[in-house]
Design a binder for these strands. Structure first.
Lengths: 123, 123
DNA sequence: TGCGAAACTGGCCGGGTGGCCAGGGCAGGA
DNA sequence: TCCTGCCCTGGCCACCCGGCCAGTTTCGCA
């Protein structure tokens, strides 16, 4: 294939805030070697910005709860979490229960999904 | 406090491909009114690009498996999924089993996490 | 026409999960 | 000092989950 020396970089915009999106589009429209993607076009990279107003309160999780949550996200069972953290299965259940409560989840799968959505953990 | 009429937009870069990241950083570094974020700095928006090579084969999931997967991601139990899809719990288990197999997961929580990572579902 | 894939259903069972009860230890603030 | 929050542990129990066995229908493809 013919190697273009300066191929354009196609950027997509996924930004909640219309004002920020407009300013970025205006700024990036004048940059040589760079183009904004047409709707539906395949882009090399995407500029994303979540509206911070949608999650005003970051849930207060204790360090131990974060430990348990991280292992839950890896599919670990209570027994495995207990072994990994050097605590008893009962204690793991205790922390899992607190997590379900704080994250308003119905089960461990829901808890991991909620936590990921709110940015508490990274998948 | 001097109120700039044109506050700088801070952009973060999260790009797997080093070459693409370099080119973008070079291009964006010269744009007035725009700045790349320092490591750990809070950014107004983030430029993301997954390396397509890390997931060469999108897993072939059947339509029914996708239905079940979506409900699993919402924390639904097998019983709830069965009711929602109008099928029996046994059939749900059957599809869940296939999902665990195809997604190489140890349980439903792991399956949802893997699927989200690979972009099969959106959390 | 035969054959495989997909979807669907049933029974069975060991182990995991989540909710409830009860406690103890240990730090920091009122 | 007492009190609160966090961390830890135990028992008990109903339910869920995942894996195993078995079977059915329907569909498209060779």
């Amino acid at each position: 294939m013919s190697e273009d020396k300066t191929p354009e970089i196609v950027l997509a915009l996924e930004i909640d805030d219309p004002a920020l999106a407009d300013r970025l589009a205006a700024l990036l429209g004048n940059v040589a070697g760079l183009r904004l993607a047409a709707p539906g076009e395949q882009a090399a990279a995407t500029i994303v910005a979540r509206d911070p107003r949608v999650m005003p309160d970051d849930i207060a999780l204790t360090q131990r709860e974060l430990d348990v949550l991280a292992l839950m996200a890896e599919g670990a069972s209570n027994k495995m979490i207990a072994r990994r953290l050097g605590i008893s299965v009962h204690t793991v259940k205790f922390h899992v229960g607190s997590l379900l409560d704080k994250l308003d989840a119905t089960g461990r799968t829901d808890a991991v999904a909620h936590a990921a959505r709110r940015g508490v953990i990274e998948l």
